[in-house]
Design a protein around this nucleic acid. Structure first.
Lengths: 156, 156
DNA sequence: CGTAAAATTGCAACATTATAACCTAAGGAC
DNA sequence: GTCCTTAGGTTATAATGTTGCAATTTTACG
């Protein structure tokens, strides 16, 4: 059973959409159709998804589909904090604990491609550890790990 | 005084070149002119440098200069462990403590653009912390932090 | 040596990811 | 409604990275 089916993923998505809507309301921002659909797609794919993949999916649904469309939507969602960019993959994933979060961490399975976001608490701890050790004023931190997830390790 | 002049940078470069040459000898690999020159350029620039910047510099010097030339050299140097890729910048930097190292961490100053590699020991500790906490079998870890370096913080 | 195998490089084309510039349309404030 | 701001449409282009194949150089080895 793929990881994407180990839980009620529709519930994930609807929660994520609710959160995004709420954040928009709080900040006086607009959750437009394209933005909403991009966010849904990011969640539905469940795996890190490239901008051009999203673009293709939008296109199939009759949305306008030039690169700026999807990049603008992604920029908005990144800013809102409901999506993260995984720079080692040039891909985007939904965030399951948004807010005003600047530190991110992912575990990326080499086998199945799933990217699991590390718990905010752990990331924060890592960040703080690093702040203490170095005389930099750290603003953001991002951590990307690769290896095998528990599932793939077991079946390997 | 720019950070690049706070130390004997030529010494850095020659040390790095020596190390690379030694690693090549140990592993029966060839340090060819292009590879050597790319490594020198990466070090000379002192800041994370894009592949196409390196390509332009090679070109000025009369080297062959099509993208594969520089990407192949970079791949070789990455594999050798004497260069790292900073994925959030799509750029490359020299490694000052090579060997067979898979875990990397950088502090990238938003102001001056310098990327400082975090001490291997610290990175290793971070990595181990994460290994213990999660049931993934982690193979590589990369950590990228942004903020202000001590220098830029002081002069700001 | 001389020849075959392997590694490296040259080269052309192409693929992927992302942005710029400029204009039109939609939504909200008054 | 009018104005202003924000969002989206469109075209083109920039920036980054890869593939495939031929030519060359290096190495291994009889």
């Amino acid at each position: 059973m793929p990881a994407s089916q180990q839980h009620d993923h529709n519930h994930c998505i609807s929660t994520a959409m609710d959160t995004a809507r709420t954040l928009c309301e709080q900040r006086g921002l607009r959750m437009t159709p394209v933005r909403r659909r991009v966010l849904e797609l990011v969640w539905q794919n469940h795996k890190p998804t490239g901008a051009y993949d999203l673009l293709a999916q939008l296109s199939e649904e009759g949305f306008n589909s030039a690169p700026p469309t999807v990049y603008r939507a992604l920029d908005f969602l990144l800013e809102l904090g409901v999506v993260h960019r995984i720079s080692s993959l040039n891909a985007f994933v939904g965030c399951d604990h948004p807010g005003h979060e600047h530190d991110t961490g992912f575990f990326i399975c080499k086998e199945c491609g799933n990217a699991t976001e590390l718990p905010a608490k752990e990331i924060k701890k890592l960040h703080e550890t690093l702040v203490k050790k170095f005389s930099f004023s750290i603003e953001t931190s991002n951590h990307e790990l690769t290896g095998l997830c528990q599932n793939c390790k077991a079946t390997a």
